[in-house]
Write a protein that binds this DNA or RNA. Structure first.
Length: 277
DNA sequence: ATCCAGGATTGGC
DNA sequence: GCCAATCATGGA
């Protein structure tokens, strides 16, 4: 295992993992343990540095987007000259947008719909435990995110037992679609509006979930997922007038362009976690 | 258009 | 502490 460290100014463990973009992590004794696909790392911030412990430095260097310049993103937001946006960016500047796997992101956010974080995490962990493949990291056993084959060969009972609720059909449908040859990764060739339109054809994916997938799974920062929290913030803090979430999202992307996703994450994290102490 | 699917969390009382 | 509303989507 290797340990690498980075300045914590624009890479904070808590900010990055608890801002709502990812579900497979736990927190113990001051450190996070994060699982992505069939890889695992420990992540913690102490003072001026954030540390990553991993067997695959290359993978997690890319995963945490460590070659991107987040100061530049942050400065661009300050240049918008909006007191509220400056406030949330300042408070949440340790967020980095994870470069998550598209398929894993899609399954995860289909499960996330109309759901709360605790339950989403429990369901995903249970799915991985039941269907995934065990691997070792730091002398402990973890379970990889299931492959498409592992999803489709599972019995229906598994889906009932992991607490997906009425979403189980969506998960099964999507797995079958992939297994029958649907090339999900190739959608990356589309521009963001076309990609979104394609995602909306999949059962269980509405506009909000589609926006999360384009942003977290396809790294499209011209996406602005609008859930109940962002809707509130749009009206209370950004003086927004629209009611329809889909239209709100469209307006926000038109206003903020490629800063949209970053602003959405800062805002969501601020509203959900920071504002409440 | 309206209601319901399942269940943990939040909010009002 | 209890009970109702909330959460996002598709199908009836």
């Amino acid at each position: 295992m290797e340990i690498i460290k980075f300045s914590s100014e624009f890479f904070n463990a808590k900010d990055t993992l608890e801002c709502g973009q990812v579900f497979r992590y736990t927190f113990n004794d001051g450190a996070y343990t994060l699982i992505s696909k069939n890889k695992c790392c420990n992540l913690y911030t102490i003072g001026d540095y954030t540390y990553i412990e991993t067997d695959d430095v290359e993978y997690f260097t890319n995963y945490f987007d460590l070659n991107a310049d987040y100061k530049k993103i942050y400065d661009s937001i300050l240049l918008l000259n909006n007191n509220f946006l400056t406030e949330i960016a300042s408070r949440a500047k340790g967020v980095r947008i994870l470069k998550q796997d598209a398929v894993e992101t899609a399954f995860s956010f289909i499960i996330s719909q109309n759901n709360n974080i605790k339950r989403i995490q429990n369901s995903i962990e249970a799915l991985c435990y039941r269907l995934g493949t065990p691997f070792n990291f730091n002398k402990k056993t973890y379970y990889s995110f299931p492959t498409v084959k592992e999803f489709v060969t599972a019995s229906k009972d598994v889906y009932k037992e992991v607490g997906l609720g009425y979403r189980d059909g969506y998960v099964i449908d999507f797995a079958n679609k992939l297994y029958s040859g649907y090339n999900f990764e190739s959608l990356n060739g589309l521009d963001t509006p076309s990609l979104t339109a394609e995602l909306l054809k999949i059962r269980g994916i509405g506009k909000k979930v589609a926006d999360c997938i384009t942003f977290f799974g396809f790294q499209r920062s011209d996406s602005f997922p609008v859930d109940t929290w962002i809707e509130k913030l749009y009206i209370e803090n950004l003086n927004g007038k629209l009611k329809d979430r889909s239209k709100i999202s469209k307006e926000l992307v038109e206003t903020y362009g490629n800063l949209s996703g970053y602003i959405q994450q800062y805002a969501f994290y601020y509203k959900r976690t920071l504002e409440r102490g």
